[in-house]
């Protein structure tokens, strides 16, 4: 951010606002029109009917990158000696396949490709965190001001989609929807209802059982809802914290030569450590997804 009114808190805030495109609510000069929010307050005021262009752009771009790359390999995949890229792709595919085989006991051809998609996609999304925090937002500000005629201060750009709770919630909700869908499909409505109401507490006494049903339901329902929540918040929290530390380190670059050099080393160290985190978080997201799918497929668990 090349701004003369640069303050530490302003810098941080600017980094934490998404490029939001939405409908300006009543009371704004552009009320009723669709456009980019000029501030965090604008974005907030737009409410639900707004979209984070940066989040969508990067997640779709990275997902498409993954799909195109893997599709190219898959199309040319041979049983003969694989080339370097095919070898690499096969290594990942076999790794994911091994985990799915070990974890998922049901029969569903969709789970393994889903796990692969989640692993690579989330990994790529997280990997955006390793790009120095100002590079892409600066480029975005230049493009925004020169091509679209926007005020560069109003061009917000968050590069890491997984630091946007919308992205992580979106993925977790999709996984949740799938697990609910397969729960109904495998266990039936009655079976799924029984799973939610008949344990952990059960009694052979019919009357007592009737009393226990609401208690069971409360416990099971909370644990059911906790799954997508924890799934998304875990990823979001880790990535947001990591991003925050990068932003704080980046603040040092405006604090003089010594502090700048120190910040450089800090950034390098944190980035190296962060490689572990981004891979681990992608892995955890994938494994938990497979586990939730497996739970949806388990019929007689008590």
């Amino acid at each position: 951010m090349a701004s003369e009114s640069l303050t530490a808190s302003g810098y941080i805030k600017h980094h934490l606002v998404n490029l939001t495109w939405g409908k300006f609510p009543e009371g704004y000069e552009h009320a009723g029109h669709w456009g980019f929010a000029h501030s965090a307050a604008d974005a907030k005021a737009m409410g639900f009917w707004a979209i984070h262009v940066d989040t969508m752009f990067w997640s779709i771009l990275l997902g498409a990158l993954f799909l195109l790359l893997f599709r190219r390999v898959a199309k040319n995949a041979t049983a003969a000696t694989p080339g370097g890229l095919q070898n690499f792709v096969e290594w990942i595919v076999e790794f994911v396949d091994g985990i799915v085989r070990a974890t998922f006991t049901g029969r569903n051809a969709m789970v393994a490709p889903m796990a692969l998609t989640i692993f690579i996609w989330v990994f790529l999304i997280n990997a955006m965190d390793l790009i120095p925090v100002d590079w892409i937002p600066q480029v975005a500000a230049l493009i925004g001001s020169n091509v679209f005629g926007m005020d560069p201060h109003h061009v917000f750009f968050k590069v890491v989609p997984s630091t946007d709770p919308n992205a992580t919630f979106g993925m977790a909700l999709a996984v949740f929807a799938l697990s609910i869908f397969y729960s109904f499909k495998i266990k039936g409505v009655g079976g799924f209802a029984a799973e939610l109401t008949m344990h952990p507490f059960s009694s052979s006494n019919k009357l007592l059982q009737l009393v226990l049903i609401p208690i069971n339901f409360l416990l099971e329902f909370v644990s059911l809802l906790a799954k997508p929540l924890s799934l998304s918040l875990r990823l979001y929290g880790n990535m947001f914290a990591g991003e925050m530390i990068f932003i704080l380190i980046a603040l040092m670059y405006s604090g003089g030569l010594m502090l700048g050099i120190f910040g450089g080393f800090l950034q390098m160290g944190w980035a190296i450590f962060h490689v572990l985190i981004i891979t681990l978080q992608a892995f955890i997201f994938m494994v938990l997804t497979v586990v939730y799918m497996d739970l949806a497929y388990q019929t007689d668990e008590h």
Partner: peptide
């Protein structure tokens, strides 16, 4: 906001 749905 809608990003949630878009992401799903």
């Amino acid at each position: 906001n809608m990003t949630l749905i878009g992401q799903s």
